[in-house]
Design a protein around this nucleic acid. Structure first.
Length: 783
DNA sequence: ACCAGGCTTCTTTTT
DNA sequence: GAAGCCTGGT
């Protein structure tokens, strides 16, 4: 007996639901109802008594997706909440909380975010007496992450090292690992890696989870990395009931180690795999899909598909070119407001998507100015804000006394007269005794060369932490702990944090207090939503905080204009989408313009953005834009040019009249004439019209290749080589007459060095003072 | 121990 | 155009 609801599925969807046994790859195009298929499939497994709810594991990428799926399953079947629906990271955290003892960690391990990782790297570089200038924290963190996602251990990295700097990197990696272990901490990658390690090392544990998870489903499979593949493969090896859902065209996390081959080679990894393609799109109108297809077809190495929609042609996709980034922002906000005031739509129907978070500022400013309610999604994660991290550092120290990163963060914050020198001494003492920083603090009087008043201060601090441990139920009866909301409040009070905030100017102080208040209400919310049959512990709370991102909190009911990056928009849909900043150097990012594989990822990102739109899509670009404090003049994005002109409605060309001639000469050839804008994309600088803007790409001119990379199978070391100095030569000085491709002739008034580059200020006849980056290639000596 | 002021560097995207 | 780092002064 098949419930009625399944008859609403289309033929392919129904096939995917019914195919419960063995490996199954569902290639789900954008908007093809994959979440629907997954939830129905789970319901089907349960309703048809194929398995029990708790035998199903469904893995998603965001907590939001997990919550949504769980909700829908629960609505459909009884006991739906017994299905294990979670992200990779929280799945692993849950498993590790139970069994990590096998790997020599305590179960109250701390989860480090990228800030914490950087702090560890900073220490490690110092300990190894390496030059901090030569080893950038971010780069090292990225390197370590690359190694981990590819399963390269520190010793393997050491063995693979060919150059001395690579040896140093591997040493940093090794010391970093040691440090994390000492701190009883795991980073994001570790959550996955250690779980795989655990399964490899403890066959009984693996066996338990294999038996338990008889049916496994993985959403967004195109964004899984190698370790995630291993994890899933380990779990599914025995029963083979593995269903993965994904769209290779929407793989946008390569930079974070996602390996698109996981999905492309699924049939090789699981030879008996069945494949179902979902190609009917239920989201967008035909015009929007046509544009999406026109862009994505420029990528090579993708699975061919024919996305179609029965929703009619709909409105045409528009493209507008603005003079400046400000113009773009004001006009977008203005048109949203106009539509809302005219009663044609409400704010929540609109989303503004952009490539980089920095772009949000302009839109925020305009929204505030025009009193348009907006919600900024993502950006600086709430839990990464300074005051929140401080309070968290207290809580983490309370929970896990071995977490030195957290302890050192707060030992003198608010200031309690413990300076760097004392901290150094304490650290040395801890290292010598082989104990944690917190344990060392408790034995402050033993530290050599420390004065008595400092000892007292350390002791005071130790007492403070001890008191908080009791409040938190870490010491004493866990059932007696304060509610989390009160606990957070207590931390802020007892530590003197509120008083410390008074030192800030009023605006900032109020902002910080507001954030702490929000933290308190989040804590309360967590407590109220706790559903397990045991009481939540501080550890549970800290874990939630570590693994929950901002996007997850997105509330669809708020009637607000949404601002977010393209990455954050994945999985969402909006009636009207503004895709802004369609400029070479910005989108695709100049960081991604050197290699085909990188450009293809940007193109997929563009595809994701386009396919978010249900009814209307507006693309836009600005001719000039402030980036890093200086003006950039960017060409129109190649992605716009890949769209056949007849699919695009060009509106307005606002404020561009005076530059008409410049357009026709270069950037603008993509429209109208369209002389060979497609064909092979990504062939370096040959792209784009007449080429008079040839070398222009915001920062670097030519010859800026990283050290040799070996594609496609990149070893970890290939991923993050330092970039060689930019090839720019200064060939004029103050007072020289110069010609700018756009502003014409002028006189140089000032030259300032900017990293490897130079900022040239010049007075242009008719345009006045402008500052141009030498590397833009737009400035030449007048002949 | 702490702060102010100047310098540099940076910026892609995030679970 | 911000945030982090260093330096030198109190």
């Amino acid at each position: 007996m098949i419930p009625e609801r399944y008859s609403k599925l289309n033929e392919r969807q129904w096939e995917a639901v019914r195919q419960t046994e063995g490996p199954l790859l569902i290639l789900a195009g954008a908007g093809s109802g994959k979440t629907n298929v997954l939830t129905h499939r789970i319901a089907y497994l349960i309703e048809q008594d194929i398995c029990a709810p708790y035998e199903i594991l469904a893995i998603t990428f965001t907590n939001k997706a997990a919550g949504e799926m769980k909700r829908r399953v629960t609505d459909m079947v009884d006991c739906g909440d017994a299905v294990w629906v979670a992200t990779f990271h929280s799945t692993c955290a849950r498993i590790l909380r139970r069994h990590i003892g096998f790997l020599g960690y305590e179960t109250d391990f701390t989860i480090y975010d990228s800030d914490d990782q950087r702090a560890v790297v900073r220490h490690v570089i110092k300990d190894l007496k390496l030059d901090p200038k030569a080893y950038k924290e971010r780069q090292m963190v990225a390197f370590i992450s690359d190694c981990k996602t590819q399963g390269v251990t520190p010793n393997e990295a050491l063995r693979m090292a060919q150059y001395s700097f690579q040896t140093a990197w591997a040493e940093i990696y090794k010391a970093y690992e040691k440090r994390l272990k000492e701190n009883n901490a795991l980073d994001f990658d570790d959550l996955l890696l250690k779980t795989v390690e655990l399964f490899r090392q403890e066959p009984d544990v693996l066996q338990y989870y294999r038996r338990r998870f008889r049916y496994i489903m993985v959403d967004e499979y195109q964004d899984t990395n190698h370790v995630q593949f291993e994890l899933v493969e380990l779990l599914a090896r025995e029963h083979h009931n593995l269903c993965v859902v994904g769209d290779d065209d929407q793989s946008i996390y390569r930079f974070r180690g996602a390996d698109i081959r996981n999905i492309l080679d699924f049939e090789k990894s699981f030879p008996e795999a069945k494949v179902v393609k979902l190609e009917q799109n239920y989201r967008s109108t035909t015009h929007i899909l046509d544009v999406a297809n026109a862009v994505i077809k420029n990528n090579r190495g993708r699975k061919e598909k024919h996305l179609w929609s029965a929703l009619g042609e709909g409105a045409r996709v528009s493209f507008r070119l603005y003079e400046t980034g400000q113009d773009e922002a004001s006009d977008v906000v203005r048109s949203v407001k106009t539509a809302v005031l005219a009663g044609r739509a409400s704010y929540k129907d609109f989303a503004v998507l952009y490539r980089t978070n920095a772009q949000s500022r302009l839109f925020e400013e305009r929204c505030i100015n025009a009193s348009v309610p907006y919600a900024l999604v993502g950006g600086v994660n709430f839990y990464q804000r300074e005051e929140i991290k401080d309070i968290l550092a207290y809580l983490r120290t309370v929970q896990n006394g071995r977490d030195d990163v957290s302890t050192e963060r707060i030992v003198n914050k608010p200031r309690r007269g413990i300076g760097d020198t004392s901290i150094q001494k304490m650290r040395a003492f801890a290292a010598q005794k082989g104990i944690s920083f917190m344990d060392a603090v408790e034995r402050a009087e033993e530290v050599p060369g420390i004065n008595t008043s400092t000892v007292t201060r350390f002791k005071e601090f130790a007492k403070l932490i001890k008191g908080l441990r009791e409040d938190a139920g870490v010491l004493g009866d866990p059932e007696e702990r304060l509610p989390f909301a009160e606990l957070v409040q207590t931390v802020a009070e007892k530590t003197g944090y509120y008083d410390y905030l008074d030192e800030f100017d009023e605006d900032r102080r109020d902002q910080k207090i507001e954030n702490i208040d929000e933290f308190i209400s989040k804590a309360e919310e967590f407590e109220n939503n706790w559903e397990e049959d045991r009481t939540a512990s501080l550890q549970d709370f800290l874990e939630e905080v570590a693994l929950v991102a901002d996007v997850d909190a997105l509330n669809e009911d708020d009637n607000k204009l949404l601002l977010m990056t393209l990455h954050s928009s994945k999985g969402l849909e909006f009636t009207t989408v503004f895709l802004c900043g369609m400029e070479e150097g910005l989108f695709p990012s100049y960081m991604s313009m050197d290699e085909d594989a990188d450009v293809e990822e940007e193109r997929r990102l563009c595809y994701v953005g386009i396919t978010r739109a249900k009814k209307e899509l507006h693309l836009s670009a600005a001719r000039s834009r402030m980036v890093n404090g200086s003006m950039n003049y960017n060409d129109i994005s190649r992605f716009v040019r890949e769209i056949p002109p007849e699919l695009l409605e060009q509106q307005g060309m606002r404020m561009s009249a005076s530059y008409g001639s410049v357009f026709r000469k270069s950037a603008y050839t993509g429209f109208g004439g369209n002389g060979g804008a497609y064909g092979r994309p990504n062939t370096g600088s040959s792209f784009g019209g007449s080429g008079s803007y040839g070398g222009q790409r915001g920062t670097s001119g030519a010859a800026q290749k990283p050290a040799p990379k070996t594609a496609p199978q990149k070893p970890a070391f290939g991923l993050s080589f330092p970039v060689s100095p930019k090839n720019v030569t200064l060939d004029f000085e103050v007072g020289d007459r110069v010609v700018h491709t756009k502003f014409g002739s002028g006189t140089v008034t000032e030259i300032t060095k900017k990293g490897e580059d130079y900022k040239i200020a010049a007075d242009f006849d008719g345009f006045g003072r402008r500052v141009i980056l030498l590397s833009s290639g737009m400035l030449k000596k007048e002949t």
